[in-house]
Structures are given as structure tokens and as C-alpha cells.
């Protein structure tokens, strides 16, 4: 389906069949259906195959450093709260290199949406274990099998009282769009962990593997209940829940500093500059 967000003249550098395609299409359609204009959207990313996604969208783009998309997105939103700000990258970028920024963004609660393409492997560097790879996952860098346990990003975010915590699956576009809509409409920090098969380097977690296991949280799940959400986040194996696990509306960072924009002085005007100068110099007399 054609959308306002379709980029032209770009060569997509993803492998044929990559889960990234499904996420890209779902995001374009969601933004379109929510009525955004490309000019009002900024997508910030890090480094990796997933981090190339903003280039394949018709939006404002800040493709920054590996792991550093969240601080950039936070600051853009703080300065321009009227823009829709999305940080989008892979599991290595968001949970590995940038893990610390994720923790502290949860505390700040900026009104940004973080989309993590989670394929449980480093694709661009050709197949090493990622923070979400299963124990025993073998690669050239871990020929003995991954010795570490996988990070559970949902449990982490829920335990810290993040604004909205969800999991989606790249292989179900409509389901993914529904979750993206909830996340983008949510006022506050929203984390969407998107399960995404890597057709080249992850022979275990394939489309078929996921399809056999995923199911959507039903009406009986209360996303306002942190303990229930946490309990659900621990479920992984034969059955993998998808949907909005947790929802914790709270004042955003931008709300807390809302009054400040109006107080900024126009220092480009000489009279105003002089006023500020004299007020300040008097403080040092």
C-alpha cells in the first residue's frame, strides 16, 4: 500500500526476506493512518541494519551513533515537543551499546517511542550473539555457545515503571500496526520490542518458529497492573505473548519543563540583550 511516507531513490540494503521489511511497511502505514505529515516526524536511529530504516522513510532523519539514538531523541523532543519523535534501532544498539541510555530514558519519561528490531543476533557484523541471544547460541565469536543469559527487555522496562511496554512480531503486520498505534498515541516513554527473524544469521528464531508460539494478550490482561505485566513478561518458550504488557501514564519530561519555552529571551535584539546583560552583571557586583 502506498503511503505519504514512502521514500524514493533509495537502495535498500537489507537481505531479501528480512523481518525489517515488515516493520518498515507497518510503520509507514501506521504514521499515514494516524494522520501525521512527514515534516512533523523525526526518526532517530543508531547503527546496524535496523538503524538504516529511517533512510527508507520519508521523514526527518537523524541517523546517529551506535547505541546513542535515545539521548538524541530525548533532546529533540525536549526542544521541539510538537514533533513526533521515534528512536528506532536493533537489539545490539538499544540493549547492548546503548543499554545505559535506555535505563535513564525510562526515568526521564520523555514522550518518545523506542522501536527495537529484536532479531537476537548481530546481523551487520555477521552473526555474533546479541544481548537477547539465547544461552548456547553458537557463532564465530562464540563457537562454544553463548555463555550469557539473554536480557529480558520487557521485564527490565516494566520493573522500572516505564510508560508503555509492548512486544510485537514483524511477521504480523496488522498486529504490529495496532501495537505501534497504541505506542505512538501514548503520551510518555513507550518501548516496543519487535520480534524479527534474521533470515541470514539466526536459523533458530525463524518466521515459522515464531508463528508456532506467539499469541496476543487477551482482555483478561490488565496492562495497568505492574505485577501482572511483569509476570507476563517472564513467559518465553512454547508460548510467547504479544501486545501491550504494561501501561503507566505519568507526567512526561516535556510537561515538567513546559513553561520554560515561553521564558526564553530574544537575545538577538540589542535592547533585550542589554537588559539580560545588566541583570546578570549586577549579580556579580
Amino acid at each position: 500500500m502506498a503511503t505519504l511516507f514512502d521514500a524514493h531513490d533509495v537502495e535498500i540494503a537489507w537481505c531479501p526476506g528480512c523481518g525489517n521489511f515488515g516493520i518498515l511497511q507497518a510503520l509507514k502505514e501506521t504514521l499515514d493512518e494516524l494522520g501525521y505529515r512527514p515534516q512533523d516526524v523525526v526518526v532517530v536511529s543508531g547503527i546496524g541494519q535496523a538503524a538504516k530504516a529511517p533512510h527508507y522513510l520519508r521523514v526527518n532523519v537523524f541517523n546517529g551513533l551506535h547505541g546513542r539514538s535515545i539521548p538524541v531523541a530525548f533532546a529533540i523532543k525536549a526542544i521541539r515537543p510538537e514533533l513526533l519523535v521515534i528512536a528506532e534501532s536493533g537489539d545490539g544498539c538499544m540493549y547492548g551499546e546503548g543499554g545505559n541510555h535506555l535505563l535513564h530514558a525510562i526515568r526521564r519519561n520523555p514522550d518518545i517511542t523506542v522501536l527495537v528490531h529484536n532479531n537476537q543476533v548481530y546481523g551487520l557484523t555477521k552473526g555474533q550473539a546479541s544481548p537477547t541471544s539465547g544461552e548456547g547460541f553458537r557463532s564465530k565469536a562464540q563457537p562454544w555457545g553463548n555463555l550469557s543469559r539473554p536480557l529480558n527487555p520487557l521485564s527490565l522496562a516494566i520493573s522500572q515503571g516505564a510508560g508503555l511496554v509492548a512486544r510485537a512480531f514483524a511477521g504480523d503486520k496488522e498486529g504490529l500496526k495496532g501495537i505501534l498505534k497504541e505506542a505512538l498515541n501514548f503520551r510518555g516513554f513507550a518501548l516496543v520490542d519487535i520480534l524479527q527473524p534474521c533470515v541470514t544469521f539466526n536459523p533458530v528464531n525463524t518466521y515459522a518458529w515464531y508463528r508456532e508460539r506467539v499469541y496476543y494478550l487477551g482482555e483478561d490482561h490488565n496492562p495497568e497492573d505492574q505485577i501482572a505485566a511483569f509476570q507476563k513478561s517472564l513467559e518465553w518458550g512454547d508460548r510467547i505473548p504479544l501486545g501491550v504488557f504494561y501501561r503507566n501514564p505519568q507526567p512526561t519530561y516535556e510537561m515538567k519543563v513546559e513553561g520554560r519555552a515561553k521564558k526564553r529571551r530574544n537575545l538577538f535584539e540589542e535592547e533585550e540583550f542589554q537588559r539580560v546583560l545588566q541583570e546578570e552583571f549586577a549579580q556579580f557586583l
Binding site: 546517529g64 539521548p71 533532546a75 521541539r80 541510555h101 535513564h104 519543563v257 520554560r260
Partner: peptide, 25 residues
């Protein structure tokens, strides 16, 4: 004066925030 002054989690975040803010205007 309506400034945003943010204590970052580390210096990496601090400089990336400054760059994001500058990109935004």
C-alpha cells in the same frame, strides 16, 4: 530564562543530547 539543563547519565549521553538539541534548533 527557560533553559533546559539536564544531568545526563554519562558524558556520552551528554554530548549526544547536545547534538540532538542543536539539530532540533
Amino acid at each position: 530564562y527557560g533553559l533546559i539543563v539536564e544531568q545526563a547519565e554519562d558524558e556520552i549521553a551528554a554530548i549526544n543530547m547536545a547534538i540532538g538539541a542543536s539539530y532540533a534548533g
